[in-house]
């Protein structure tokens, strides 16, 4: 098994474990965080804070590498344009996130925790992604 499979498999597993450990696979925790006018649960801020702290360090190391450790070159987003599409799409995502307390990572990770509910969410999410793709092709 080469690094192109092993690295993402390991990364996805650590990511999924982190989501579950941090309580993010429970929509009640996520909605609790978004409920700032009600019974607020700050747990998500600690999850986001911990993840961002580690990644701030990783972004300092990245420019020092000429090539990723397992090769394949760096393919990183370069654009800095603030478009209506970016802001509108993100705003739309937030509405869906608020309705059910699920975003893509926890939805997929929860497939082993609450299989039917998670599968319904993930199926609908993929359908939404397909709709976005069809819309863009015809735009």
């Amino acid at each position: 098994m080469n690094g192109r499979i092993l690295v993402p498999a390991l990364s996805g597993s650590i990511f999924g474990a982190g989501l579950a450990l941090g309580g993010m696979t429970d929509p009640a925790r996520v909605r609790g965080f978004l409920d700032i006018f009600g019974d607020w649960d700050p747990t998500l801020a600690f999850v986001m804070g911990g993840a961002v702290l580690v990644m701030v360090v990783a972004w300092q190391i990245q420019p020092k590498l000429t090539e990723p450790l397992f090769g394949g070159g760096f393919a990183l987003p370069g654009t800095q344009d603030l478009t209506p599409r970016l802001i509108g799409g993100s705003a739309l995502f937030g509405i869906g996130w608020g309705i059910a307390g699920l975003c893509p990572g926890p939805g997929i990770a929860a497939l082993v925790i609450e299989p039917i509910s998670a599968a319904i969410f993930v199926g609908a999410m993929l359908a939404g992604m397909l709709l976005a793709r069809l819309f863009e092709r015809n735009a």
């Binding site: 690094g3 192109r4 690295v7 993402p8 390991l10 990364s11 996805g12 597993s13 650590i14 990511f15 474990a17 982190g18 989501l19 579950a20 450990l21 941090g22 309580g23 993010m24 925790r29 609790g32 019974d39 649960d41 700050p42 747990t43 998500l44 801020a45 600690f46 999850v47 986001m48 804070g49 911990g50 993840a51 961002v52 702290l53 580690v54 990644m55 360090v57 990783a58 972004w59 190391i61 990245q62 590498l65 090539e67 990723p68 450790l69 397992f70 090769g71 394949g72 070159g73 760096f74 393919a75 990183l76």
Partner: peptide, 26 residues
């Protein structure tokens, strides 16, 4: 009801996972 320590540990794991993708395969 908050779980700050579990959240922080989970978050650090997520950060390590993301760092592995960034530095491992770019």
């Amino acid at each position: 009801d908050a779980a700050p320590l579990a959240g922080l540990i989970g978050g650090v794991l997520i950060g390590l996972a993301a760092a592995l993708m960034l530095l491992g395969i770019g």
